[in-house]
């Protein structure tokens, strides 16, 4: 156990250090791909907080991801760069607020109901952006200039530069990881895990379960917003597809593929999923089949659901490592 604890302490720093060095080695395509992986890792960790730690299977998590992207596109001036200093907290704040409002409703339900209702509310948002002129309809909105991050006249981070944007995203990914790790090790986090294991007993012990779940839901919404904001910056546009249910399904797949209930699992899952997507849709390798890469992805998802319920992290524990669910407990 001691050894596992020590590994838990230094391994994330080693990984972050190696990732930070990556732009020195490779500067274009793979760096952009890795940026995408890191953004998805934030997204997956935020969902893992709900699915893996609070026991809430949300199938509408893309709503908060997409909402933040739209918030950036709509809040900033049309052709000039917006300031990251207020658009990022603003976008995340909107997501937290929306998560709290929807949370008040969806948390009245459990089990299958919860899954359907989260999906339905996400889809509601999809139609808001798809059917109205608010967000440019199905075409979406271009973000012509990436947000600026200046201090007075000094440019702190130039988001137009791929490597600087990469480091910023890495900073946020690491920040999310350590923040969540901290929170999950706290009394609050323990209460969430208790709720996941035995909600009824938590209530009988005197925990106001609903409030804890709502707080978790709001936090997860805000962090999904962080990921969505960064994704919108990277892609340079938003359209309704970023909050479609395919996105919600994809992020759920990342969480389970990596191994839910472990933060590093969410990161591994995001990495594996994005990579798979790239490989399967690579025309140079698969030719005409690459066009139908979702077929292979669909089959793979079904196989994971049937044969790999604990994900890749679970696979590792099979080879003699300690149970991954204890990560946060003996942190």
């Amino acid at each position: 156990m001691m050894q596992g604890g020590a590994i838990n302490r230094w391994l994330p720093w080693v990984v972050i250090g190696l990732l930070a060095l990556f732009p020195m080695v490779e500067s274009n395509f793979y760096m952009q791909l890795l940026t995408k992986v890191l953004i998805m890792a934030i997204f997956a960790m935020s969902l893992d907080l709900l699915v893996g730690y609070t026991g809430l299977v949300s199938f509408g998590h893309a709503a908060y991801f997409g909402l933040a992207g739209y918030a950036l596109a709509l809040m900033g001036p049309k052709y000039e760069a917006a300031s990251l200093w207020w658009t990022l907290p603003g976008a995340m704040g909107i997501c937290v607020a929306f998560a709290l409002v929807t949370g008040l409703l969806v948390l009245r339900t459990r089990g299958i109901y919860f899954i359907m209702v989260t999906l339905a509310f996400a889809q509601m948002l999809y139609f808001v952006f798809h059917d109205t002129k608010l967000g440019g309809g199905s075409d979406g909105i271009y973000i012509y200039a990436k947000p600026t991050m200046n201090f007075g006249e000094t440019v702190l981070v130039n988001l137009e530069k791929l490597d600087q944007f990469y480091w910023l995203v890495l900073f946020f990914t690491a920040g999310t990881y350590f923040l969540l790790r901290r929170i999950l090790g706290s009394s609050f986090g323990r209460a969430l895990m208790g709720i996941k294991v035995n909600e009824h007993r938590m209530r009988a012990l005197g925990f106001p379960v609903f409030r804890y779940q709502l707080a978790s839901f709001g936090l997860a919404g805000g962090l999904a917003g962080l990921a969505g904001y960064l994704a919108a910056v990277q892609f340079g546009f938003v359209n309704p597809e970023i909050l479609s249910w395919h996105q919600s399904g994809a992020v759920l797949m990342m969480v389970i593929l990596g191994g839910m209930g472990t933060l590093h699992g969410a990161v591994i899952g995001a990495f594996a999923f994005v990579l798979l997507q790239e490989v399967l849709s690579n025309q140079a390798w698969f030719g005409i089949a690459a066009k139908h890469w979702q077929l292979a992805m669909g089959i793979l998802i079904m196989l994971v659901a049937l044969y790999l319920p604990q994900g890749l992290a679970g696979l590792m524990t099979k080879f003699g490592r300690k149970p991954a669910t204890e990560e946060a407990v003996d942190d």
Binding site: I183, F188, V197, R201, L205
Partner: peptide, 30 residues
């Protein structure tokens, strides 16, 4: 009706924790 995957101590600790206000305990270790 207990928390099967947790340690015995954690079961009791969670129960004891329920008696204290938690709002400010998000960042310090349980």
């Amino acid at each position: 009706n207990i928390f099967l995957p947790f340690t015995v101590f954690e079961n009791a600790r969670l129960a004891a924790q329920s008696r204290t206000p938690n709002a400010l305990r998000v960042f310090s270790r349980a």
